[in-house]
Amino acid sequence: MKTLNLTEAAQFLKLHPEEVRRRAKAGVIPGAKLGKRWTFIEDDLADHIRSLYACTRQALQVGHEEKKLCHSLNAVKRGGLDSPHQAASALDALLQQKTKPRRKNFTTS
């Protein structure tokens, strides 16, 4: 297990050292601050890069059969509002302030 300092990690990730420091401080890049210096494990950085890879996509299949690759046409609509007017009125109802009824002032003479 090889450890890297901030400069080495920046070279490994091909980023500016200040960017690596900001991302590590925010928890985006795995690293630890030991005393006054950042330390990174090379395997953790490689795993972090792998986690950013795009998911594997289904290859376009060419053949005699016609295959439907777009599944969104068969999607089932569940819930939600039907019109923009309904959406606006629902939003207005959510944003309305909750107010208590005013007390009536009774004076007796």
Rank of each mutant, 00 (worst) to 15 (best):
A87H: 02
Q61A: 10
H85R: 12
R78W: 03
K36P: 02
T39F: 07
L81I: 03
A24T: 04
E19N: 11
A32S: 13
Y53N: 15
L34Y: 10
R57I: 11
A54S: 10
Q97F: 07
K68N: 08
E42W: 01
L15A: 12
A32N: 13
R22C: 09
Q11G: 14
S109C: 07
C70A: 14
V76Q: 04
E18D: 13
H85C: 06
R57N: 10
Q61E: 08
R102M: 13
A59M: 09
G80L: 12
K100S: 14
Q97K: 10
D82V: 03
A90S: 07
N105P: 12
E18W: 07
L60W: 09
L6R: 02
G35S: 05
Q86I: 05
K25M: 14
R21A: 15
T3L: 11
L6Y: 01
R37G: 06
P17T: 01
G31A: 03
L95I: 06
E8V: 09
E8K: 12
W38F: 15
K100P: 13
D47E: 10
A88P: 00
E42R: 14
D82M: 05
T99K: 07
A32Q: 14
A88F: 09
Q96V: 10
V62Y: 05
T108W: 07
Q97G: 05
A59G: 06
D44M: 03
